[in-house]
């Protein structure tokens, strides 16, 4: 079953091309790394899929649903939580998620929060960048979604926690759900991924299975770095 199908997607803003003729199909249950340099269009692609960016051309279907509003029910995407003031507690944010997402699982949230060493009485303003990112990951995986979109989720998380979280994500994610992790650093997510999608020059340059890459190259990072050799 297809979790995501994108056909001829183009997205321009003012005079700038952000995505051009993107075609991409992801099967259900896969863990996919969405890689590319800064500004390649990874975040914009996720925003288009999630219905947050508008005025694009082409087709986007999530679990067979093309309607922008309706496909949101299948997606859990990382969010900066900018709608909440620093004075709000973690439990307030959880209350909001509980109210607006019917697939929010309280037990899962409590478990992940404990795993992340976070207390639900802590205020958002007292959290460090890394702790806030852990909370965002906890909120995303507390939902039983079909498609998880994680946009550079580990940039502020310390190396030890990052490894633990990456391993645990496999347990938190429902088996049939697809997980897309966008990052420009591959080394830590490489061991768990099934597929790699490389975005370059505003389009999908390569989509390959991780197993194939591992068989042909020393590592996924080596394969990825090969696309940027000779570039500044």
């Amino acid at each position: 079953m297809k979790a995501l199908e994108i056909k001829d997607l183009s997205y321009h803003k003012n005079l700038k091309t952000i995505l051009e003729r993107v075609n991409l199909t992801l099967e259900a249950g896969k863990i996919v790394a969405l890689v590319g340099a800064n500004g390649a269009g990874k975040t914009s692609l996720m925003r288009v899929i999630a219905g947050l960016a508008k005025q694009y051309k082409g087709g986007v279907e999530v679990c067979g649903e093309a309607d922008e509003d309706r496909r949101k029910q299948y997606i859990a995407m990382t969010d900066s939580l900018s709608a909440f003031r620093d004075s709000r507690k973690i439990k307030d944010v959880a209350d909001f998620y509980r109210l607006v997402y019917p697939d929010f699982d309280d037990k899962q949230f409590a478990d992940i929060l404990e795993f992340m060493n976070l207390n639900e009485d802590e205020r958002l303003g007292s959290l460090s960048k890394g702790m806030k990112e852990k909370l965002i990951i906890a909120l995303v995986f507390s939902r039983k979604a079909k498609l998880y979109l994680l946009d550079e989720p580990f940039s502020g998380v310390d190396a030890m926690s990052r490894k633990k979280i990456i391993k645990s994500m496999l347990l938190w994610k429902p088996e049939e759900a697809t997980l897309v992790i966008s990052d420009h650093v591959l080394d830590e997510i490489a061991p768990v991924i099934d597929e790699v999608v490389l975005i370059k020059k505003h389009s999908v340059l390569e989509q390959r299975s991780a197993e194939e890459i591992r068989a042909e190259h020393e590592s996924i990072e080596e394969w990825y770095e090969g696309f940027y050799e000779g570039e500044e």
């Binding site: 219905g51 029910q73 995407m77 900018s82 607006v100």
Partner: peptide
């Protein structure tokens, strides 16, 4: 206006 433009709110699965 802030709610209409908020990424947190716009992810909510509800019709426009």
């Amino acid at each position: 206006y802030r709610i209409n433009r908020s990424q947190t709110w716009r992810q909510v699965p509800v019709t426009a």
